[in-house]
């Protein structure tokens, strides 16, 4: 890989989004795009400031983020533990893997009617949906990560007198970590998708709720604002996952900072 190219820096990846936003603004001001169809970036920012001043913005972002974090934590923990047990203990793998693979093929958003009947449209319905969506990518990646740890390293560990616990913490877990992190990044995407759908269907707070009410009052600027908010939150969580990768995989030359 060439490292010293002019385009290999922090700023370059932002060039394209910036150009698109400027173009959007210009086309909007020239009335080539009607603001009833798509408000200009300035109008969206104004809507953001307005809602910030009333406090609605922070309130709803907080509610959505809280749902995302709780759902991710529950689903992630279940997926990770299942992957761990099924990856290390053959009995558990034989017992549960086939069933999990079967359930996995169901799109989790297809459960929405069922979830509404079970939980109503309260908090637990949304957290449940996020957790179910997050669980599978983390399970599959943890499981295959553990299964693919170099057997030769494990044999070395045994010859060199490592205990079972040391084998796990020094060889199996770090060996599976690249896969686990791939699962986490993928699951973060699933988190926001699940939340967007769940909040649009029925909620009394959150970004999706903001979008639905804005639609009813034909507030195009707020509708677009909510889309932008999801994009920012999604990018932010991916950024945090990337930081984790750089920290946990710093031994891997692909992740080491030059």
């Amino acid at each position: 890989m060439k490292k010293n190219q002019w385009y290999n820096n922090q700023i370059f990846p932002w060039l394209l989004p910036i150009v698109i936003v400027i173009l959007w603004q210009v086309l909007g001001q020239l009335n080539l795009i009607k603001s009833t169809m798509l408000p200009t970036p300035f109008e969206v920012v104004e809507a953001g400031i307005r809602l910030f001043q009333t406090g609605e913005l922070q309130e709803n972002v907080y509610i959505s983020t809280k749902r995302a974090v709780i759902g991710f934590a529950i689903g992630g923990a279940i997926g990770f533990l299942l992957g761990l047990f099924n990856g290390t203990i053959l009995f558990f793998e034989k017992l549960t893997d086939t069933s999990i693979q079967m359930i996995r093929t169901i799109p989790h958003l297809a459960l929405i009617p069922l979830v509404i009947l079970w939980f109503g449209i309260g908090e637990s319905a949304k957290i449940f949906l996020v957790a179910v969506g997050v669980m599978f990518p983390i399970y599959i990646n943890t499981f295959s990560g553990i299964k693919n740890v170099d057997r030769k390293l494990i044999e070395m560990g045994k010859v060199y007198g490592m205990s079972k616990w040391q084998l796990f913490t020094n060889i199996i877990l770090p060996g599976a970590m690249p896969n686990i992190l791939v699962g986490i990044r993928y699951a973060l995407g699933v988190t926001w998708i699940s939340l967007i759908v769940a909040e649009t269907i029925g909620a009394e707070g959150g970004i999706g709720y903001m979008a639905t009410t804005a639609r009813e009052f034909m507030q195009m600027d707020v509708v677009v604002l909510t889309i932008v908010l999801y994009a920012i939150l999604g990018k932010l969580s991916d950024f945090i996952a990337k930081l984790c990768e750089q920290r946990l995989l710093k031994w891997n030359p692909a992740y080491r900072k030059n």
């Binding site: 007198g161 490592m162 770090p174």
Partner: peptide
């Protein structure tokens, strides 16, 4: 446990420093 093997491949743990690789078990 008083026996050690040196393998054909080095079997170093890529995620540990050289010192930590030697200080195992």
């Amino acid at each position: 446990s008083d026996i050690r093997i040196m393998f054909q491949d080095d079997r170093l743990l890529p995620w540990e420093s050289i010192l930590k690789n030697v200080a195992i078990g």
